[in-house]
Structures are given as structure tokens and as C-alpha cells.
Amino acid sequence: MAGTLPRQGLDAQGCIEREGSLARVPHDFRPVVAAARDRLLDVFGGRMHSAYLYGSIPRGTARVGRSDLDLLVVLRAEPTDGDREDARLLGEALDKEFRRIDGVGTLLYSKARVLSEPERYDMGWFVACMCTPLLGEDLAEYLPRYRPDSLLARETNGDLALLLPRWRERIAAADSDEARRPLLRFMSRHLVRTGFTLVMPRWNGWTSDLTEMAEAFGLYYPGRAEQMRAAAVLGYEPTSDPAVLRSYVDDLGPWLADEYARVHGVKAPRPD
């Protein structure tokens, strides 16, 4: 059955195609993208090398009032605490002004870090394939083409075992529905994406759609398929159920981390 699935997200050479473009940004989200572009320049100025959009807005699948604005800012030097605070304040201001988005997330990296050898199959791949250029020079010009192989799987999501203890701490600290809901959304998405990249080399394709990711995973792990489908639903429409969060760190997460390490190995260590 898996072998009859059409290949998705790859070019004629079998490399992952870059997803998203400014042309695909839905009309309702163009004002917030324009505002983000202008304010990034105001806030970071000459410290910024380039900036990118990623996620549902440049893919053209964003939902008004439900989707967040995802930004990646590449700085000329390593980000400081001041840079992170500037990014946080910028995100809060955009979120408050534009009710059509549900939050702003901003990743900060240095140019040297993105182009470093340890990040070539992680952050480098992310910039080259998942990010849409918004400002500055596109770092994808300095990066290779990427195939959906075991190396990419290991270096993108082969660190789940290291994350689980932190997740347990965050779950323990989440003492309200308001705190648990975004946590459930984040963890659901992370687990679905990890489940997908586990099977990505066998499936031989790429998708960023959580439902499609869960279905691809289920082709190879039918015993866990319903869990992954449920996580995909919660990735789009999260609840605040603490039992689900516990199941992620007590059952699905540990199993997935062990299976990932068995199939692809463990992600190479990073400074942070």
C-alpha cells in the first residue's frame, strides 16, 4: 500500500521542494506580513542579515483568527538576551494589533550558526526548504539540496529523548487551561512531525500538513496510527486535557524516541 502512494513535495531529482512563497500569502494576512517586514527593519536594523516567513501563512493555508505568524530572523552575530526581548516585544505588538493572527513566534539564529556544519541538516534544511525569504540575502543559496533520507530524519528530529524531561517539567508547571492548551498544541505538532520524519525515507516525500503526516506514519505503524491521528487533530484544535499531555510523555513520546533512535540514530549534539 505504501509503495503506491504518489510522491509528494519533491522535484524531478527527488529533492525536497521549497514550500511557501510570498505570492501564496492569503489576502487577509498580507497587512500583518507587511507590518512585520517594516518593524523587523526598525527593530534589528543593521544587526539583521535576513528574515523569513514559515508555516501556514506563506503556504497559503492560514486561518483567520486561528493561525500564528511564524518568523525566522538571522542576525549577523549570535543573538543576545536583548535581541530576544526585542523579538518578544515585536511579536506582542503585532499580535495585539492584528486580530487575524493568533500569536507570533520568532526564531533567532546567527548567520554563522545556520551555515555551520552541525546545522546543515537541521537549521540549514529548515531555511532552504521550509522558509520563505522576506528580507535580505537568501541563505538557501549557500546550502545544498536535500533528500528525504535517514540523515535528514536523524538531524531534524532525532533528539526527542532529550526533550521529554523538559516537557515533563513544563506539564507540571502548567496549572490552568490557558497554560495547557498551547502546550498541548505544541507537543501534538512536534510528535506528529517526529512520527512523520521517522517514516519519511520510506514514504519518500515531504508534506507539512499534520493530517497527511499522521496518515503517512500510520502506513508503517498501524498499531500507533490512531494515536498519531488524534495528535494531528489536537495540533490544529487543541484542548487542555492534562491526561493527553501525560500520555505524550509517558507513552507515545518515549516509544517514539526509542523507535527513532533504533531506526535513524540520535541527533548529533548541539551547543544548546
Rank of each mutant, 00 (worst) to 15 (best):
R202L: 12
P242H: 04
R189S: 15
A216F: 01
T194V: 13
R229N: 04
Y248K: 04
L245T: 14
F186T: 14
D251L: 11
M200N: 09
M187F: 15
V192W: 07
R189N: 15
R229E: 02
G195Q: 07
Y248I: 09
P222L: 09
R180Y: 00
L183H: 09
M213C: 14
L245D: 13
G195Y: 03
M228P: 04
G223Q: 03
L191A: 00
D209A: 03
L184W: 01
A179H: 02
V192H: 03
T194P: 10
Y248Q: 08
R181N: 00
R246H: 11
A216P: 02
Q227A: 15
F196Y: 14
M187A: 05
R185Y: 05
E215D: 13
L234F: 14
D241Y: 08
R193M: 13
N204I: 03
A230C: 01
L183K: 01
A179G: 12
M213H: 09
T239W: 00
V192G: 07
V233E: 13
L191P: 06
A232N: 06
S240W: 10
D241H: 09
R202D: 11
P254F: 14
S188C: 06
A243F: 15
L191Q: 08
R229G: 04
A216S: 09
G223Y: 07
G195D: 07
E212I: 03
A214E: 03
P201R: 09
Y220S: 08
H190M: 13
R189K: 12
V233R: 14
G223E: 08
R185P: 06
F186N: 08
L245A: 13
F217S: 04
G223I: 10
R185F: 07
P238S: 07
F186W: 12
M200R: 10
G223D: 11
Q227P: 01
D251R: 10
A216E: 11
V199R: 02
G235H: 05
Y221I: 03
D209Y: 05
H190C: 10
P242V: 09
A179V: 12
S188Y: 10
R246Y: 12
A230W: 04
L183S: 09
W203S: 07
P242L: 04
V199I: 08
S208P: 01
V249A: 00
D250V: 13
D251G: 15
L245S: 10
L252C: 00
G195P: 06
G235W: 08
D251H: 12
P242G: 02
R181S: 02
P254L: 13
D209E: 13
D241G: 06
T239R: 01
W255T: 11
V233T: 14
G205A: 01
A243V: 14
D251A: 12
T207V: 10
P182D: 08
E237P: 06
R181Y: 01
P182K: 02
E226N: 05
T211F: 00
S247P: 11
L184S: 06
Y236K: 08
V249E: 00
P238K: 08
G253H: 06
L191G: 07
V244A: 03
